[in-house]
Design a protein around this nucleic acid. Structure first.
Lengths: 200, 200
DNA sequence: GTCTATAATTTGATAGAC
DNA sequence: GTCTATCAAATTATAGAC
């Protein structure tokens, strides 16, 4: 049944997150899903393919959400980015699975392309959002949109990591959007001050 | 010998980084170090304690470097932070080991305190650096130093993650210091514009 | 302190009945 | 498609000789 597939992916998300890729056993995933190990190999072929299917699904879901938010404009896009950030950071499985996806991609050449491509797509989307914001506000940031997008994404993942670490007395929920705004403001100020393009 | 301990820690760094904590076997670490598995258990007691010793050493080394740089002043501190960032990002074992330390800490209560405390120390150090920079420049950033420090550290780890992903055409080496400067500039501009403290 | 040999489990994966 | 039973290999850790 398709029921089995869904149950397996849900169970795999929990177990892979909690134990890590190598620490998770197919037996535990099967038990958590209420099926047998045979079903896993019948549907996914191998442990690695199960993880790949799980990871790919999550990456596509995230990209879709980010794109939807950014289609509504830069302000709405940033708000959606912050919403995704908070949801991810507040979900232990989501945070651990994100980190595990990166780690597995680093160590498994066959999986690296998927994560790398996903990252490039998100970055391009963010860069386009920066370009729209620039045009709307009529400002010059003095640096390529790609670099601003890279910083935005880095801040995103870095904050997820820090939120999860749970050091007391830090990081209010709107920190991300405030810092991105400040970054844009500062870049614009430095560009206006430091040297306009086309200056002799 | 103390020789054995050093060789084991060096080998453990490589193997744990390349295979992950669960993927690494004590047998492979022993082979890489040129000793036997018995020596590992004689010196470290368990696989977990070996990892703990390795991780603790790296965390202390990083903290010491960051502190040294920041003692020389905010500008020098930021430069040192960027130097550590580039060194970490350019070293595959260093990047993977950092990520693995976080992941293991998340999953092992006994290890979480070490990573969490380390993070708090680095954040406090960065916050003190921000305070000194504020005082030197006579500016108000409008937000607590802790929040600026949190953003700086998040940007640090996020950039390490992105650099290692190796998406083409991104992230020049001085991106970090430029973005931190822009962030500070933007915060100061927004604070001056939005509302001075003590205003009626 | 370091080695070799081995114990005791657990692992990913498969075969074959239904 | 899903199950149970099973395999072969690998795993952490220990015991005891040197």
């Amino acid at each position: 049944m398709a029921r089995t597939r869904a149950a397996l992916l849900a169970a795999a998300a929990d177990v892979f997150a909690e134990r890590g890729y190598d620490g998770a056993s197919v037996d535990e995933i099967a038990r958590a899903a209420g099926v047998s190990v045979g079903s896993i190999y019948s549907r996914f072929g191998s442990k690695q393919d199960l993880f790949r299917a799980l990871m790919t699904g999550h990456l596509e879901g995230d990209l879709h959400r980010v794109r939807s938010g950014m289609d509504a404009g830069p302000e709405q896009g940033l708000a959606e980015l912050e919403a995704v950030l908070l949801e991810t950071a507040r979900s232990r499985p989501a945070t651990l699975l994100d980190a595990e996806s990166w780690a597995v991609a680093m160590r498994t050449p066959a999986m690296r392309a998927a994560v790398s491509d996903h990252h490039r797509r998100v970055r391009d989307e963010a860069a386009a959002m920066v370009a729209r914001g620039r045009a709307a506000g009529g400002v010059d940031l003095g640096v390529p949109d790609d670099e601003v997008a890279t910083a935005m994404i880095a801040l995103f993942h870095g904050l997820v990591r820090e939120y999860r670490l749970g050091v007391p007395g830090e990081a209010p929920p709107d920190l991300y959007s405030r810092m991105v705004h400040a970054l844009a403001t500062g870049l614009a100020a430095l560009a206006a001050d430091g040297g306009p393009p086309g200056e002799p």
